[in-house]
């Protein structure tokens, strides 16, 4: 779960999806880093999730002790946060737990591998960091969801970002680009875009997270250059929390190509 900005409802969406994921078996819940409100000494409600018996969660020993759930400790991670020692716990009693994650994506990846290897959970939900699409590339077999808050004031900006995201997600996956394709190693930045050959015909990115271009510049590039990615990362969709914007208005704003990526929000009752 990731979002265009803080407060876009990632953790809330994760909470809503967890019961669905549980249909396949126990769920493992991870965060990335420490929630900002916790760092600021707040109550950290933003990072609280409910776990059922058998679910696995990453938190710290201090939050595990304060939780209404009871966790049996499965593993203690080498890194420490300001909020205690990071651990993986399995709920032996349902309740609410504060998610605390490692700042390092490679550490997160190792923890997820451990959950897979030990078969502690059937699925893993990650409450990702906002505005950091690069995190998706660090995890094997990942699919990601975007959350956005949209209102009359930011509709056109959000729509453009969704269009750019959808365009990236739809790029063909070509692991071995043909000769003559310009191969971009690492991120494609605005400076990198300026340095591309003028007569560029085809471009290959490592994966969709490697575009650091502003949406408008990216969309313009994709109109003129045949672009592909060497590794595919699946975008499940975009969940929008709308205020004073109808579903139809949002679909119209993102356009017919990106509209299929818009998913219904679990927080909206049917009209």
């Amino acid at each position: 779960m990731t979002g265009f900005e803080k407060g876009s409802g990632k953790t809330t969406l994760l909470g809503a999806l967890r019961p669905l994921a549980r249909r396949a078996g126990p769920v493992a819940l991870f965060g990335i880093g420490v929630d900002g409100s916790l760092k600021a000494g707040g109550d950290g409600r933003a990072a609280v999730v409910r776990v059922e018996e058998g679910d696995v969660v990453q938190t710290t020993d201090l939050f595990a002790r304060a939780s209404s759930a009871r966790l049996e400790i499965l593993d203690v991670l080498p890194s420490r946060t300001s909020l205690g020692r990071l651990l993986l716990g399995r709920a032996v009693r349902a309740g609410e737990v504060t998610l605390v994650g490692d700042e390092s994506l490679s550490a997160l990846s190792r923890s997820i591998d451990l959950v897979r290897d030990e078969q502690w959970a059937a699925s893993v939900l990650v409450d990702g960091a906002a505005s950091r699409i690069t995190q998706a590339a660090a995890l094997d077999g990942v699919r990601f969801l975007y959350t956005v808050r949209v209102d009359g004031g930011n509709l056109s900006r959000v729509a453009e970002r969704v269009r750019a995201l959808a365009a990236l997600a739809m790029l063909p996956v070509v692991p071995e680009p043909s000769e003559g394709t310009f191969r971009v190693e690492g991120p494609l930045t605005e400076e990198g875009r300026e340095a591309l050959p003028r007569d560029l015909g085809a471009l290959s990115l490592e994966d969709l997270t490697k575009s650091f271009l502003p949406p408008r510049l990216l969309l313009r590039l994709l109109e003129t250059v045949a672009c592909s990615v060497r590794r595919g990362i699946a975008l499940l969709g975009v969940v929008a929390l709308r205020r004073d914007v109808t579903a139809e208005e949002l679909r119209a704003a993102v356009g017919p190509v990106a509209a299929p990526f818009l998913l219904p929000s679990p927080f909206e009752a049917a009209a």
């Binding site: 809503a16 929390l241 927080f267 009752a269």
Partner: peptide, 8 residues
Amino acid sequence: DRPFLLVP
């Protein structure tokens, strides 16, 4: 399980 819901 939802903490809130948007309803017409």
